[in-house]
């Protein structure tokens, strides 16, 4: 799980239950999408920065800008263009304001989401996910199978990355150009083969556990 940059700590933000963190994040995101007043967006941004302070990680607040600036720049440029060339044309100066508000809103949502990720250990996120799947049991979801699929996914990400690299090197060593089909065709055949082998390995271990029968029959394995 080294993909996650978890910043351990003991602050109230770190110690808050995961459900509370998700609920706060969801509310902040909905407010940022639905309520685009400069005052509201500014207040939410200040609130998110307050949470970073509370988590004693104020230096991390700007990280979404460093990583995600192309996305934010795209958001700003698109909103600016929509203001200048849209159905109600504004002067470029007037269009600047809404563009900045949109950028601030997108940034605020990304920063809030990142705070949850860096203050929660990866294992806790996975446990939360398994718990979340359990809520859909009545809709026919097999929570054990879903949680197992998450684990298969996370273990396979490095494997697929290595397969892409290995096949790219194989092409290069034969002096072939690295076309997308020439690369991804063999990678995908290897990937499906890997999935079948994984499926057999799971089956051999009796995974995923069969769902509990509603009306268990007599247990013949027990002695009379």
């Amino acid at each position: 799980m080294n993909l996650l940059d978890h910043r351990p700590g003991t602050s109230p933000v770190h110690r808050a239950p995961l459900g509370v963190k998700y609920a706060v994040l969801l509310v902040l995101t909905v407010v940022l999408v639905a309520w685009r007043q400069p005052v509201v967006v500014g207040a939410v941004l200040a609130g998110v920065f307050g949470l970073y302070l509370l988590a004693r990680l104020p230096g991390e607040f700007l990280a979404p800008w460093r990583r995600g600036w192309p996305l934010l720049a795209f958001a700003g440029v698109a909103r600016f263009a929509s203001g200048v060339f849209g159905p109600v044309p504004l002067s470029p100066l007037d269009a600047l304001g809404p563009a900045l508000v949109v950028m601030a809103a997108v940034f605020g949502a990304l920063a809030a989401a990142r705070l949850l990720v860096i203050t929660t250990p990866g294992t806790e996120l996975l446990d939360g996910l398994a718990h979340f799947f359990g809520a859909f049991r009545r809709f026919g979801v097999n929570p054990e199978a879903a949680a197992l699929a998450v684990n298969v996914m996370l273990r396979t990400i490095p494997w697929v990355g290595a397969a892409v690299r290995a096949h790219a090197e194989a092409l290069a060593s034969r002096g072939l150009r690295r076309g997308p089909v020439r690369l991804m065709g063999p990678v995908l055949v290897a990937t499906v083969g890997h999935a079948r082998a994984t499926g057999e390995a799971l089956a051999a271990r009796g995974l995923p556990a069969a769902p509990e029968p509603k009306h268990p029959g007599p247990d013949y394995t027990r002695g009379a």
Binding site: L3, L26, G68, A105, A109, A113, R114
Partner: peptide
């Protein structure tokens, strides 16, 4: 959406729902 960094640009979590993608 749960927060594992699998989206493009290493963005993660519910926050992407407020973004252009």
């Amino acid at each position: 959406l749960a927060g594992l960094p699998v989206f493009s640009g290493f963005n993660a979590g519910i926050g992407v729902l407020a973004g252009p993608s």
